[in-house]
Nucleic acid binder design. Sequence first.
DNA 1: CTTACTTTCGAAAGCGCTTTCGTTACTTGT
DNA 2: ACAAGTAACGAAAGCGCTTTCGAAAGTAAG
Lengths: 336, 336
Amino acid sequence: MVTIYDIAKKTGFSVTTVSKVLNNYSDVSEKTKKAIKAAVEEMDYLPNSHARTLTTKKSWTIGVVFIESLGIGVKHPFFNAVIESFRQEVEIEGYDLLFVSRNISNQKKSYLDHFRYRGVDGVVIVCSTYDDEQVKELIEDPIPTVVIDMSSDQSSVVYSDNYEGSRLAVDHLQSLGHTRIAHIAGHESTFAGEQRKKGFYQAMKALNLEVPDEYVVNGDYFSIEGGARAMKSLLELEKRPTAVYAAGDSLAMGAINAINEQGLRVPEDLSVVGYDDIELAQYIHPALTTIRQQTDLIGQESAKLLLKQIDCKESYVACTQVPVELIIRKSTGPVA
Amino acid sequence: MVTIYDIAKKTGFSVTTVSKVLNNYSDVSEKTKKAIKAAVEEMDYLPNSHARTLTTKKSWTIGVVFIESLGIGVKHPFFNAVIESFRQEVEIEGYDLLFVSRNISNQKKSYLDHFRYRGVDGVVIVCSTYDDEQVKELIEDPIPTVVIDMSSDQSSVVYSDNYEGSRLAVDHLQSLGHTRIAHIAGHESTFAGEQRKKGFYQAMKALNLEVPDEYVVNGDYFSIEGGARAMKSLLELEKRPTAVYAAGDSLAMGAINAINEQGLRVPEDLSVVGYDDIELAQYIHPALTTIRQQTDLIGQESAKLLLKQIDCKESYVACTQVPVELIIRKSTGPVA
DNA sequence: CTTACTTTCGAAAGCGCTTTCGTTACTTGT
DNA sequence: ACAAGTAACGAAAGCGCTTTCGAAAGTAAG
C-alpha cells in the first residue's frame, strides 16, 4: 500500500506538505502542489479512510437501521424506496451508508454500541413501531439521528401527513356516494397505523358519517395476509360496508383478494383504497386507488435533516411532514 | 471517548494486557481478566473500529455495488431480496455492509478506488449487464469479489440455472398443448436475458417446436413498459402465439396488461409465464405462473463464496449455479 | 540450591494520517 | 538599510489500537 510517506519520499517534500496538498491547504506553492499531485497520480495513491477517521473523528459514514415488524429488511417496498432516495441525497455530500449487524467480535451488542464502535457520523432509522428499545436508546444518545415514519420529541423525524391522507381517502369515497366506509388499520403499535386510524375517525366525523365499531378492524402488520383476514371479518357483517380504506397497499391487496374469493368484485361491489402507492399498486387488478407517499421527498428531507445536524455537530430536533396525494385508479367507483 | 488507556489506568495494568483480554489472548490470568472486564463494563468502553482496522488491516466490512440497468438500486425487487439474504448470512460472521458512493473528498472515483479507500475486506457485485467497465475493474483487482447474476472467469459468481428455467417454462407450456410459444427476452446486454433466450431456443428445439423470428422479441431492460411494448408487437402478428414466456416477472406483468388492453384474457386467450417469482407475482391478477429464483439461496451461496476468499486471503474463482423451480399459478392454461 | 520451564505481564514500535506551531527565506515599505 | 510582514515548508505529537519480544516471577525437576 502506498502511503503519504512514499509520495513524500518520492517528491522530496515532507509528509506534512503532502497531506496539505491532499487537503487543499493554501500554504503550499503552486509548483510543489503540481509535483505532489503528479506523484499521487503516478503512484496510484489513495488515502486510507481509517487512518483519516482516526485523526479527524469523522468517518463520512451514515449508519442505517431497519426496524420493521415484517422482518423483511431492505425488501420492504416503501422503506427501500425511501432509503434509496436518502442514499442518493447523502452521496452527493460524500457519505456512504453502513448497514450494520449487531455483533462486535462475536458479542451481541445494541445498534447504538455498534454505531459508536463504527464511528458513524449519524444514523437514519427506518422504524414503524413505537417504543422499540433499540430505537429509544439511539435517539436518546447525542449522536445525530433522523427517524423516518415515526414521531418523537427527542429526534428529528420525517413522516407523511397521515391525517391528510386519511381525509383524502374518506372524502374521495364519500364523493362517490359511499357512506358505509370501513377501515383496515395497521397494527396499533405502529405510528403510521395509529395516525391513519385517528385520521379516519376524524374525517368521517367531519362528514357526519357513522363508524360502527365493527367497521374498524385490525390488519396486523401491514401484511397481505393481515389485509385478507381483516376483510373476511368485514364481509361477514350483516350490514356490510360498501367501501374500505386500508392503511397500506399490502392490506388493500389482501382485502381485494378476500373480496374476490367471496365472488364479489372491486369496485362494482366494494370500493377499496390503499395507502403508500407502492410500485405495484398500478399493476394489480384492478389498479389500486391509493394515497401516495412521496418516498423521494421523504428520503431527501430526512437526508437534509440529518446532514444539518452532522454539520452543526449537535443532534437537534426538527420535524418535517411530507404531503401526500390521492391517486385515483380503478379500485374505487360509485356506490352500487 | 474512553480508550484502552483509560481502562489501563483504572485497573493498573498496561494497555497491552487490556488489549489482550479484549482479544482473548491466553497469556492473561483469570483474575486480571475479570478485573479488566469489569472495568470495561463500568466505563462503558467500546473499541474503535478504525484504530483496530488501521493496525490489523481488516475492516469487517463488505462493499456492495448495484449495477443494474433500471437505475433503481435497492428498489430492485429481485436484487434487494438477494442482498437481504446475503446480509443476514455475513452478519453472522460479524461483517457489515457498506453502500458506497463514488466520490472521495469530492472527487469522482471508481468503485474500486472507493473500496480500496474504505479498506473493505471484499465486495459483492450485483450486476445484470455484461461488460460494465467498473465491474471489470473490480473483478480484475486482487480484492475478493463475488458477482451475482453474471458469469466471469475472473471472479467467483453465482447465478440461477437459467437454461433449466427456460426449459421448465417451455415444457410446462407445451404440456398444456401450446406449440406457438413466443419469448419476451431481456436486454441482450444482460447475462440473464441472454441465457434465458438461448435456453428458450434450446428447449423449443428439444421439443421440435418451431420458433419464427418474430416470436422472439426484445423486452428491453426487464421493465413493465418493455414487456407491454413487446407484447403489443406480438399481438399484431397475423399468426399470434398462444403462449408467451417472459424473461422476467415485470416483463410478464407488462405483457398481461397489454393483453388485457386488447380485450383478450389470460390465460383463456393467451398463457404467460414469467421469471423470478418476485413477491408480487402471486398477488397480481391472474396470479403469475413463473420460474422461481431462490433469492435466499443465491444470497447465502454468494456470501459463502466471498467469505471463503476473505478467509484464504486470496481471490479465487468459483461458480455456483442455483436451481430454479416452476411455480404454477393462474396465468397459464390449456391452449384454446 | 540450581536449572529449566511456564505464566503473566509490559515497553515500544508501528499502522497512515492530520494539525499545530515553528522556522526559514523572501518581500515590502520607509 | 532595517523592521515588519508574508509565503512556504517541516518536526513532532497524537488519534486508539495490536503485536512482537523480552523480562520477571513463579514452579517443577534434578
